[in-house]
Structures are given as C-alpha cells and as structure tokens.
Write a protein that binds this DNA or RNA. Structure first.
Lengths: 165, 165
DNA sequence: TATTGTTATACTCTATAACTATA
DNA sequence: TATAGTTATAGAGTATAACAATA
C-alpha cells in the first residue's frame, strides 16, 4: 500500500526509502521506529486484505468474519458454537450475534445436539451452501488480487511461512 | 504446493495438521479453504500482535494507533493532520478524536501553521516525549516477544518481505 | 473549486459481566 | 462446579456526509 510513486532508487531498495518527492510541497513523512516493526507492516497488509475482500464480496454482503464462519461450518457439519468460536478466535458472545444474522438471512441453522442438550449443532442450509459457493468464487478472486499485489514469490513465501506459525 | 491435510506427521509438518487429539472428545476442527488463504493467517497474526502490544503497554494506556501517531509526530515535527492521516491510513475524522484524546492527556499540541492558516502543525509536548520514550521501551519488548513467537528466522524473513510491499 | 480540520451519525468489532440451562 | 449459549453494555474502530474557514 505504500508508495506507488516509485523513483530513483536501487532496484533492491524498498520504495519507501526512495527519496525525491515529485513536487516541492510533497514532503516525505518518516515512519520513525515503525519502519522496524513487523506488527506495523502486518497491520497494513491486513487492512488491505479486509478492504479488498469486503469490496469484492459486497454483492453478497458477506464480511470476512461471516465468510470464515460459513467455511468452517461447511467443513465441520454439526460442530458447536464453542468449537467454532475457539477455532476462529471469535468471542462466544460475538458469535451469537453473527449466527443470529446468518440465520435470519437463511444461511445457517442451529439444531439440538443429540449428545449434549446444552449444545447446538451448526449446519448450513441449502441456501447457505449456495451462497458460500458463490462467496468462494469471489474470495478466490480476492486471493488472486492479493497474490498479484505481493508478487507470486512473496505471496508463496508469506503463505508458507505464516502457515507454520 | 504444500499439501495441507496430507499424510501423517512428517517433521516439517505444521502442528495444526498433526492428527491424534489428546482425548477422545477433542475433535479436530477443519479450516476448510481458509487453510489456503493468506489473508486468514495475516489476520490471525495481526490479532496476536495487537493483543500482545495492548497488554504490554497497558500500564501507559497507549493503543497501537496512539503509539503510531506519537512516533510519526515525533519523527516529523510540525506535520499536518492530513499528512499524518495519509501516512497511517487513518480517517481524518478519526484522527481528530485521537488527537483530542492525546491533547487532553497532555501528550500532543496543535499549533497554527505559519504557511497555511488551514493547517495545524503537530508536535509532542515534553510530557509526550517522555511517555513516548517509555512506550518505545515496552514496544521493543513486544517486538522481542513477536520475534520469539515466530522464531528469529521467520521474523526476519517476514519483516524483510513485508517491508518491500 | 479544492483542501483542512471539524462535527455528527451509524454500524461493526471487542471486551466484559452476568444470567439460564444443562452437565 | 463447570460449560454452552445468551443478553446487555461500554469502548474502540470504520465509513460517510456535511460544514466553516481558508487556499
């Protein structure tokens, strides 16, 4: 997301460090110590990811959190809310409202769990499966855009590295 | 190319994919397609970063956003709110409230800009400089913790890679 | 006309605490 | 006692729109 206003640097030099503002009243703002903080760059990339994802799935009105919930329910039919919340690091209380919304839109169901009366067994409705299929198509395009933004080599490197953590 | 739920655990295999739940009632929850999505892992790391950062700076009550604002003002004394907002990708409207808060706490000042009456020239107060110095110490500990969580090699790889983006 | 800082609004997300029903 | 789901609330963050002062 940083400067597309490339310029007169060595090829290996990060664009951010390239000098020479295009016009006189365009001062270069220093990042200070942030330029050495991994968390700062992770945050910037994550913001880009969410913005692009939300934009690409806007026709379905599916947020990143909603998408991840639909995906995990689909891949683990009958799991409980506590399991889902723990898997995605969502607060149980927040998940309740997320599921209210998805249920109201006809995408998910909460069925009584046969083994434990406290639990709900989560599943997608037929409609939920259909919308998830369409969402996956759009999400794949987002992933392609992300790969293009980063460059295929960096993309693969980051995915392989972060998956191991 | 790294096939996710491939065979039984090779040594290089991510722990997430290792099978064998410790007890019978601890089912393995599948991530589905999320396991191939860079954005998912970026988000998870970013959440960890924020939680650790907030915890480590809780004694100063400085959020990641507040820290980044103080750092950039310190490194660019006299810059305008618009410049600061653009640098950190913060909405101008949001920055106003952030600065209200920091000013109320005595950390920042908005001085009239000599060149342009519409602008404010931002700077840290003496107190702001002191609190930033302490915050930097705690933030450095957070960075060390992040390096330890990821492993030094992965940390360096990620920092170098993301900085280039 | 465009930009800077501002106010206002609405919605989402996060973090807690407390309640109920079940185990 | 502990757990699963729920409700309620407060505080951040995000996204807009509109406005006055100034360029």
């Amino acid at each position: 997301m940083p400067s597309p206003k490339a310029a007169a640097g060595k090829a290996t030099m990060p664009l951010r460090h390239a000098a020479a503002p295009l016009r006189r009243s365009r001062p270069v703002i220093e990042l200070g110590v942030l330029d050495e903080r991994l968390g700062y760059f992770v945050r910037r990339l994550q913001v880009w990811v969410f913005q692009d994802f939300i934009r690409r799935l806007s026709s379905l009105d599916i947020s990143p959190a909603q998408f991840s919930v639909l995906v995990v329910i689909s891949a683990n039919r009958g799991l409980s809310q506590a399991e889902l919340a723990a898997t995605l690091d969502i607060e149980r209380a927040r998940l309740v409202r997320l599921l209210h919304l998805l249920e109201r839109r006809g995408f998910t169901q909460r069925l009584p769990s046969p083994a434990d009366a406290r639990r709900h067994a989560l599943r997608l409705t037929r409609e939920g499966q259909k919308v998830l299929a369409r969402a996956k198509t759009l999400a794949a395009r987002h992933e392609t855009a992300l790969k293009q933004k980063l460059g295929p080599a960096r993309y693969q490197l980051l995915l392989a590295t972060l998956r191991e953590v």
